[in-house]
Every structure is written in structure tokens, then in C-alpha cells.
Design a protein around this nucleic acid. Structure first.
Lengths: 114, 114
DNA sequence: CTCACGTATCGACAGATGTCAATACGTGAG
DNA sequence: CTCACGTATTGACATCTGTCGATACGTGAG
């Protein structure tokens, strides 16, 4: 990426959006990052799988089969979800466990209802 | 696209998503379509502009300047938002007015909390 | 009808994105 | 330490996406 060195990592949606006020460039960028992370059917499925799991968390090894993609690809998608702040990653032993951060999506959606 | 000829036009999010149940391919596709439409800072701004306007609706001519893009580009973005079911288009005279359909986003977000 | 004007479509192009195979990294077991 | 195994990174490639200029389409004014 020609990534602007700024900002980054777990874009946290920001406070609000008063009626009649237009959101600024930075907020628009952060919101878009969250929505873009969910703008792929595979990642939607991943989110659904994790959210719907009995423990509320899953490791990569459990996710590759349901979505039918290679391990590196799933790992890539999970990284995007983490960077968007939609899931949290926790390393336990050799496994990486992911759990949803549902508030992020709710906050992003709320910011647009304005 | 190698687009499946099926489905299409104003993807309407679908009913639900019970806890413990994984969403199917079609629903994942529809949800992704909605989120992808908001996965661009320009479109986030456009949504915000329209939602925040006093009349609750705006025409393309009022949108080009705030986002600083050409008319064809704005028209293109609006088309995507319409196809995602996030805004409704109404032609009145020579102008095309757009108004938000906020329920679409709320329903999509809800489907993921599952 | 003809014209002006707001909007949509087309063609083109640079850059982003999803995917994989190959490989590197980290951690627990022996 | 060494090895096996789960995960992440890299490099490559086809496709998708955002943007523009040029142009076509539709509608109200004259």
C-alpha cells in the first residue's frame, strides 16, 4: 500500500454525527474502513461463523473448511477484520482465537443515521 | 463480472439469522453488497450529506461540489448506493433526487449480530 | 421542433483486492 | 536444542474498482 503512515490499526469509529453536520474526511475514511471490511462475502461469513459459534470465538484452523479457502487467505481476511476493529485477536498457545467486537459495527451504522 | 445472472437489484437484506446458524452464500452476498456500497469514503460522505440535508433528499448537482468529484463519478457512486438499497432515486423534472433508506443498513448490521 | 441543462453511460486507465503456492515465524512437545 | 504444527507473510496474478473526459439520453423552456 501507499498507505498514509498516519492513523491506523483498529479504526475506532469516532463519537457521533449531529443532524445537519457533514462528517469530515477522517471519519468518512474510518467508517469506510469498517464497512469495506464487511464488503466481501467471505468476511461476512467469517463474522457470522465466529459470532454464531458456541464459544463466541474461533481459530483459523476451524474457519478454513467452512469457507472453503486456503489458510493464508483466511488469515488475510481475519487481519482485515482485526484492522477494522470488528474482531479481536488473542494468541493462546499455538492457536490464534478471534472474537467479534460487535459494538464497532453498531457504532459505524449509527454514525450514518445521523 | 462473471456475475451469476440471478438475484440482483436492490439487494434486500433478508429476514434474519438465528444464533448458531451460519448464513448461506446468497445472504452473505447480499449483506456484502450493502456493506461494500459503504466501503468507500466518498459514498460514506454522500450518504451523510443526503441524510444530513434539511429536506432529507438531494440531487446530483448539489453533491458534486461537496465531495469534489466529477458529475459522472458522483452519478456512478449514487447508482451503487441505489443498487445496494441504501438510497431511493426519484426523478422530478430534470433532476434526480436521492433519499436514504436507513432501514437497509440497520437490517444488515442486525443480521450480523446474530 | 429545437435548444439548454441535468443526468447517465461508455471507454480507458491506474491502483486496489482476493486468491493461491511457497515460505517464514512462533510456540509447545520431545 | 530440535521438531511438528498452527499461523502469518511474501510474491505473483487475474479481476474489480474509482476516476475522468467524451458523449448520449430526457426533460422543460422557448
Amino acid at each position: 500500500m501507499s498507505t498514509p503512515p498516519a492513523t491506523e490499526a483498529t479504526a475506532d469509529v469516532a463519537p457521533c454525527c449531529v443532524l445537519g453536520e457533514t462528517i469530515d474526511d477522517g471519519l468518512a475514511h474510518d467508517l469506510a474502513k469498517v464497512f469495506k471490511a464487511l464488503g466481501d462475502p467471505t468476511r461476512v461469513k467469517l463474522m457470522s461463523l465466529i459470532a454464531g459459534s458456541s464459544d463466541g470465538e474461533m481459530c483459523v484452523c476451524d474457519l478454513t473448511e467452512p469457507v472453503g479457502l486456503s489458510q493464508p487467505t483466511v488469515s488475510h481476511h481475519m487481519k482485515l477484520l482485526v484492522e477494522a476493529g470488528l474482531v479481536a485477536r488473542e494468541q493462546r498457545g499455538r492457536w490464534a482465537y478471534y472474537r467479534p467486537t460487535i459494538d464497532t459495527l453498531a457504532a459505524a451504522a449509527k454514525a450514518l443515521n445521523a
